[in-house]
């Protein structure tokens, strides 16, 4: 899948693009080494959710948490 298409090769909707952007930003945040425990744990939890939403919609997210 290119970043602009889902696992069926279809163009992403605006909602799907926004979701992927959130997921990517969460991945970037999680990769930082200076997060306090409350933010690190919350980011990991949010990443689990954003991955699941992307998976539900057939979006093939990749990266350290995927």
């Amino acid at each position: 899948m290119s970043s602009q298409r889902d696992m069926l090769g279809r163009p992403l909707t605006a909602m799907e693009l926004e979701l992927l952007e959130v997921h990517t930003r969460l991945q970037r945040l999680a990769a930082r080494g200076d997060l306090p425990p409350c933010v690190a744990a919350g980011t990991q939890a949010a990443l689990g959710l954003s991955w699941q939403m992307a998976n539900d919609l057939g979006l093939d997210v990749t990266g350290p948490d995927a």
Binding site: M1, M7, L8, D56, L57, G58, D60
Partner: peptide, 23 residues
């Protein structure tokens, strides 16, 4: 719960399954 998937046609579902199987 997930209209995009639950409402899709069988050939689309099978294409998605193939992509997910490979993953």
């Amino acid at each position: 719960w997930n209209p995009k998937i639950e409402g899709m046609a069988r050939p689309e579902l099978e294409a998605l399954q193939l992509a997910k199987l490979r993953r």
